[in-house]
Amino acid sequence: MSANLENKIALVTGARGGIGRAVCKRLRQEGATVFAADIDSLGSVGSGETDSAGAEKTGPAGAEEREGEFLKMDVTIEDEVVAAFDAVAQKHQRLDILVNAAGIEIEKSIEETSLEEWNKIFAVNVTGMFLACKHALPLLRKGGNPSIINFGSYDGFIADPQLAAYCATKGAVHALTRAMACDHGPEGIRVNAICPGYIDTPMLQSFFSSAGEGGDIKSLQNAVRDVHPLRRYGTPEDIASLVNFLAGDESRYASGQLWVLDGGLSAQVQQMRL
């Protein structure tokens, strides 16, 4: 099989998260030139907070997990966003693929969420996406069959408890995806969102550690797994596979859509334990 993304130029935000890494790796395998943007070259260091697109933000990763040319970019800081795209422009004068994978999660109800936390999660998950898209557009217009891929979530459709602000940001991502598809479709730019369910990443493992504290974590993990029609968690590679499709020319008529990838989890009515 020939490479799907030969000669394409791609930039991935949140590129050092669990999903971001898998995305960079796949895009490189498919022949794309990849710019890996994140707040530092290992990914941010978390303290209870994690990269919603995947990784618990700790620990050094091997070079093979850090594919692509690193660009420092805090998506909440406009100057850094502009500088990163300037760097791409100087080398290639165009961009074909933008993957917005930067995101954080706050596990609280709105009553427990401070205004500062609320503003922070919106700054990263929504404003960060806005800034990256806004400043990528001039370069994307010069690209070939350009594609923007945002990270929404199945939580943008149905709520998990104690994730109110996170759910709200993902709903905003879904609406932004459709709005940009409408505005920029006429210039040939496609915009889609991937809405992952439960993806096996360090973040999910740490989530289970706290959710199952004092109990049998393994049986909790298995029970949750078995609610999925496919009876498994997703992998970062599953997500990267969809990114590859949406980034490439095979999906040239797909735009403005929300691509749920959750092993069938959200296709079902809640299964009562009868």
Binding site: D155, D160, L220, V227
Partner: peptide, 13 residues
């Protein structure tokens, strides 16, 4: 509100 909530509760939450 059944269908607005995750199918994983109350197992996980």
């Amino acid at each position: 509100g059944l269908t607005s909530a995750s199918p994983l509760q109350p197992m996980l939450f």
